[in-house]
Simulated scan of single mutants.
Amino acid sequence: MGEETQMNATRGFGLVERARAIAPLIAGEADEIERTRRLTPAVVSALVENGLYRALLPQSLGGAEVPIEGFMQMLEEIAKADASTAWCLGQCCVCAMIAASLDRDTAHEIFNTQPGILAWGAIAHEARAVEGGYRVTARWDFASGSRQANWLGAHVRIASADGVSRKNADGSPEVRTILFPAESAVLHDVWQAIGLAGTGTDSYEVSDLFIPERFTAFRDVPSALREKGPLYRIGTGSTFSLGFAAVSLGVARATLDAAIALARGKHQSLAASAMRDNQSVQGLIGRTEGDLRAARAYLHATANAMWRDLSATGEFSAAHRSAVRLAATWTIHQSAKVVDAAYHMAGATAVFRSNPFERRFRDMHAIAQQIQARDTHYEDVGKAILASE
């Protein structure tokens, strides 16, 4: 391992240790996060003060720019304490990767003004090119972490001044990411969801907003990168996949641990002995533990193999993208199975809000409904496998 790689790894694991250190605070705030559907000020302050939002920000801007494994482990630790907090943190960390495609002064203005948090939602709508920038009137959805952010972004198709949609050389629509202060938008409180309730994944809207050219970028386009570190070659799409799969592992780990703790002391109704002495329970715990360890090992092995190749060659290939997509999708699905097994193992105990099961059950199934867990990803990977010889 080279000296620079060693330093990056140290930074990554430093963030993991900080995540573990603030996990008890986050766990203590989890009920309030659920009730208010927002991360609490105490949690946001702890994340900011410990530099966790800056995990994927370039070193040139004072960020950690950690290897992907450090980012994944950081999210896993936070998810054990609260899934909504981990989800918002992962979302905003990945959004910060856009800094690698902005000029330095613009990136500094966005990310080095407290709290330096950027959030965005899905690709939608169109912005019209005007002198010096773009104008847009639109509403976007799914902005996890927007309630903590001081900047918002959106991915929009670009139209010329006369309203004609601009195309790339391959005929696809030109899409840019636009960035603007959160105060320029109206946020709509729409996130009434069965799981990940505390993420505040609300909608946001702007009307005839002018976006200067320098506050736009081509997202996930290698030729547009100002930063040359391997992290930014991965792109936001695959980084979201790895990050949210790590969140699912943290939720699964915490839920299974809670079931194990319950089994050590609980007597099932009408049973003469404790659950810990029941062979069916013992076998279920053993198999479920194996499933979880296998999922974690597969995800991290895939991420590490990709990172080694990327660091050596500077290329994030189609094969890497396919491998990451498959591992992340399968890990989320496997984590959901672990949570289901733990939930059912707990019996009637699991349905009470005072016990550590029902929220994690809801959070896990909300995660499994997101784009990173779509079954169509298996079809895409299968198609690629069949096309190769």
Score class of each variant (00 low, 15 high):
340 D>L: 09
372 Q>M: 13
231 L>H: 02
285 I>Q: 07
260 I>N: 02
267 H>E: 10
41 P>F: 03
33 I>M: 04
1 M>Q: 13
51 G>M: 09
221 V>T: 13
365 H>Y: 12
184 S>Y: 01
200 G>K: 06
57 L>N: 11
205 E>D: 14
96 A>D: 03
5 T>Q: 14
213 E>C: 01
13 F>E: 12
323 A>G: 11
54 R>D: 13
123 I>C: 07
298 Y>R: 15
380 D>Y: 14
302 T>K: 04
236 T>K: 13
360 R>C: 05
158 I>R: 09
101 S>W: 05
44 V>A: 10
247 V>Y: 02
235 G>C: 07
190 V>G: 01
343 Y>W: 11
249 L>R: 10
385 I>T: 11
25 L>I: 02
139 R>F: 00
306 M>V: 15
267 H>K: 15
3 E>R: 14
312 A>Q: 15
245 A>T: 09
360 R>F: 04
221 V>S: 07
314 G>M: 08
294 A>Q: 15
74 M>L: 15
381 V>E: 04
16 V>L: 12
117 I>G: 05
160 S>I: 00
152 L>S: 06
112 N>P: 01
256 L>K: 06
50 N>C: 03
138 A>F: 08
263 A>M: 12
122 A>Y: 01
337 K>Q: 14
70 G>L: 07
388 S>A: 15
12 G>H: 08
142 F>V: 10
315 E>P: 00
178 I>N: 05
215 F>A: 01
181 P>E: 09
17 E>W: 00
233 R>H: 14
41 P>Q: 06
116 G>A: 03
358 E>N: 11
338 V>Y: 07
152 L>D: 09
55 A>E: 08
330 W>R: 13
229 G>E: 14
191 W>Q: 11
204 Y>L: 07
238 S>F: 05
106 T>K: 06
95 C>I: 00
70 G>R: 06
371 I>A: 15
102 L>R: 09
127 A>W: 01
194 I>A: 13
67 P>V: 08
314 G>V: 09
274 A>D: 03
47 L>H: 06
105 D>P: 00
6 Q>F: 13
24 P>N: 04
97 M>V: 02
365 H>E: 03
96 A>P: 05
85 T>Q: 03
13 F>P: 00
211 I>G: 02
112 N>K: 12
193 A>H: 12
160 S>E: 12
249 L>M: 10
109 E>G: 01
307 W>T: 10
103 D>Y: 00
95 C>Q: 10
45 S>Q: 13
46 A>R: 04
277 D>H: 14
130 V>L: 09
190 V>W: 00
216 T>M: 04
222 P>K: 10
